[in-house]
């Protein structure tokens, strides 16, 4: 039997009470989803059918428009979490090459304007009249010639964004649950899953919805493989890594992935599944991914190296 008493215990001794809260979970979820939208939107832009406005799928318009909006909302949540908000400008007066958060701050600072440019370039001719300011209208027309180049840049930035959120957490040796080289890839893949689910919800064309539902199943299959690798790397690592995989986390992780895919699989075999069913599955996938991010943030903080070392 072991009894531990700590005199002078901070909230930090129980770090889940102190470090990051739900706001960071939402940022990680939105950041991942935007990464997915950027990557899938850019790939759709490169397809041969996308050379003309008429042939381009809806995702080519809406993914670029949604990306800077959703990322800005995510950034707002990050801002909410800062305990010295007025000092936020220091992120951009310093670059620490060893700090993933510094990379992230500069990266997101670059992604928001470049994805906004991509959004302006992607607006089709018939919808350009929604831009009220004549100068913005003209600018949108001018940069539409660079649509493919901007899609290429945003594809690279989308991959960076998806990976960086995982690198941010995986770099912390002090938190064994996060400390895995598989996490950046898992987060990138999870972002692609969220992005494709979002596209299923917003796509106008029924065939487009089905196409992304099928893509989503493949991405979720890859997610299951990555989860198994994540578990394998933790189970073969040190005792704190093994202990970090608490049953609650496992339940959330599998419920967030297995439950939606179990509902999604019959959609492939159905001749013409009801749109409501396709939408419902997409919503479940998004909720599952949100639950995974929340579980990662909270359970990761519970898995303190010093706390486990005391036991």
């Amino acid at each position: 039997m072991k009894e531990i008493a700590i005199t002078g215990a901070n909230a930090i001794t129980y770090p889940h009470l102190e470090i990051w809260n739900w706001a960071i979970s939402i940022y990680l979820f939105l950041g991942g989803m935007v990464a997915g939208l950027m990557v899938l939107g850019a790939i759709s832009q490169f397809r041969p059918s996308s050379t003309t406005d008429a042939g381009r799928p809806f995702v080519c318009y809406l993914a670029p428009v949604l990306s800077p909006i959703l990322l800005s909302i995510g950034m707002f949540f990050i801002f909410l979490d800062l305990s010295r908000k007025l000092n936020a400008f220091w992120f951009y007066l310093n670059f620490n090459i060893m700090s993933p958060m510094s990379w992230g701050a500069w990266g997101v600072g670059l992604i928001i304007p470049l994805s906004t440019l991509w959004a302006l370039a992607s607006i089709p001719e018939e919808h350009r009249h929604y831009l009220r300011w004549p100068k913005l209208h003209d600018f949108s027309f001018k940069i539409s010639a660079y649509r493919n180049k901007l899609a290429g840049v945003n594809l690279a930035l989308g991959i960076f964004l998806g990976i960086y959120t995982g690198v941010l957490l995986s770099g912390y040796v002090a938190r064994p649950l996060w400390n895995s080289a598989v996490l950046p890839l898992f987060f990138l893949n999870s972002g692609l899953v969220s992005g494709s689910a979002m596209i299923i919800l917003i796509a106008r064309n029924y065939q487009e919805k089905l196409y992304f539902t099928k893509l989503n199943i493949w991405l979720t299959t890859a997610e299951i493989v990555l989860v198994l690798l994540f578990y394998y790397s933790h189970l073969t690592s040190t005792a704190p890594h093994r202990e970090a995989l608490i049953p609650f986390f496992t339940a959330v992780l599998f419920a967030g992935i297995i439950f939606p895919i179990a509902l999604e699989l019959p959609v492939i075999t159905a001749r013409r599944p009801a749109p409501l069913r396709v939408h419902l599955i997409a919503v479940l996938i998004l909720l599952g991914n949100l639950a995974i991010r929340v579980a990662f943030v909270y359970v990761g903080q519970l898995s303190s190296l010093s706390d486990i070392a005391r036991r």
Binding site: N10, A11, I12, T13, P15, E18, I19, W20, D81, L82, S83, R84, K85, N87, A88, W90, F91, N94, S99, M101, G171, Y172, V173, A174, R175, Q301, S304, L305, S306, D307
Partner: peptide, 21 residues
């Protein structure tokens, strides 16, 4: 303190749980 933004990255990074806000 003048440079600190309160992002809590240092708190998450410390293996000794020695920091707090």
């Amino acid at each position: 303190k003048k440079r600190c933004v309160g992002c809590k990255a240092c708190i998450a990074a410390c293996p000794y749980d020695a920091r707090f806000i």
